[in-house]
């Protein structure tokens, strides 16, 4: 509930007529004004406290958004630890709630992996075969939720999100694309799709309302390559071939925009997914297409002066 996506989902849930009361847990306080929700500032490692809060509340629906993307808010080792701890605590606690009917879990299209000859646009039926650390983290969260759902007989919906980008979303991809000079793969500039944080939040609310019981890809329509994104943002493209990536990623890390493995994979091998099922099952259709999300990313200003906010792309 404290992160950008969590706060967004909470704010949207508060506006839903079917939501009676709302309780949230996070390591950061909410970034939006919440009127109804009760918030608990807890670390993922505080399992007993988390179990206590969740079981006392005894919810009908649990939404687990506690996924730390590597190099978004924490480095890989910490991200892996926090995600595993939070999943164990929250999914485990949810299993102890007798009123629980449904659980919605955040995952990502990284779970499909990008090994050679893997599907260009995997559907939800494609095998889970992660080829990055982040993909493996997400696959583990999915597996835990599925297992709990099977054991206690509740609906478990999994939303496999494309890279979530937004003006204020901590994302290694977004951060990298906003650098003045952005590296791209000269010989393998592959297309990828993203999703805007507001659209992702709307998908979670719909999934919770409909008691989703299957995995769904949440992907904005259209696609873009890294070079095209760089050109849209009027950044300087820096072509890379092979071993230069190592130097570029180290340099980028020093400059404050680390490039984790799954982002390197996205830039080399692309990352698309078929999001058609979201419309059929949830009636969800993203408001922004992938190129529009990229344009919004670049419309972000480092200093926003009140009264002179310009939405247009710089």
């Amino acid at each position: 509930m404290g992160g950008e996506l969590g706060s967004y989902v909470s704010a949207k849930l508060e506006a839903e007529p079917w939501v009676g009361s709302l309780v949230g847990i996070d390591v950061d306080p909410p970034r939006r004004r919440l009127r109804k929700a009760e918030f608990h500032l807890l670390q993922p490692s505080q399992r007993e406290r988390i179990v206590d809060v969740v079981t006392k509340f005894n919810p009908h629906v649990v939404i687990n958004l506690s996924v730390w993307e590597p190099d978004a808010r924490a480095a890989l080792a910490h991200a892996r630890q926090f995600t595993a701890d939070a999943a164990t605590a929250i999914i485990g606690a949810a299993a102890e709630c007798p009123a629980l009917e449904s659980m919605v879990v955040r995952s990502g299209i990284e779970v499909y992996g990008r090994e050679r000859n893997s599907a260009t646009r995997p559907t939800e039926t494609a095998p889970i075969h992660p080829t990055s650390d982040y993909g493996e983290m997400l696959a583990n969260v999915e597996a835990q939720a599925r297992e709990v759902g099977r054991r206690i007989g509740i609906a478990v919906g999994t939303l496999r999100l494309a890279s979530v980008l937004g003006k204020h979303v901590p994302s290694p991809l977004g951060r990298l694309l906003r650098q003045p000079v952005v590296p791209f793969s000269l010989f393998a500039d592959s297309p990828f799709a993203v999703i805007e944080d507001g659209d992702a939040a709307r998908a979670f609310v719909l999934a919770a309302a409909r008691r989703l019981d299957e995995p769904i890809n949440i992907v904005a329509p259209g696609a873009i390559t890294t070079l095209q994104a760089i050109m849209r943002g009027k950044r300087v493209p820096l072509p890379m071939v092979g071993p230069e990536w190592l130097v570029a990623s180290k340099l980028s890390h020093v400059l404050g925009a680390p490039i984790p493995g799954h982002v390197v994979e996205l830039m080399h091998r692309g990352r698309l997914a078929d999001g058609a099922k979201a419309l059929d099952v949830l009636g969800f259709s993203p408001v922004l297409s992938t190129p529009e999300v990229i344009d919004h990313l670049y419309a972000w200003e480092s200093v926003v002066r009140i009264g002179s906010i310009q939405e247009a792309v710089a």
Binding site: T120, R121, G222, A223, T225, Q228, L272
Partner: peptide
């Protein structure tokens, strides 16, 4: 940013900004 824009301006004129479709 200014230096980069000056360098890539001729390229942009020849290569308008586009995106790819759902399949790339």
């Amino acid at each position: 940013t200014r230096a980069g824009n000056a360098l890539t301006l001729p390229l942009r004129a020849a290569w308008p900004v586009h995106s790819v479709d759902d399949y790339g």
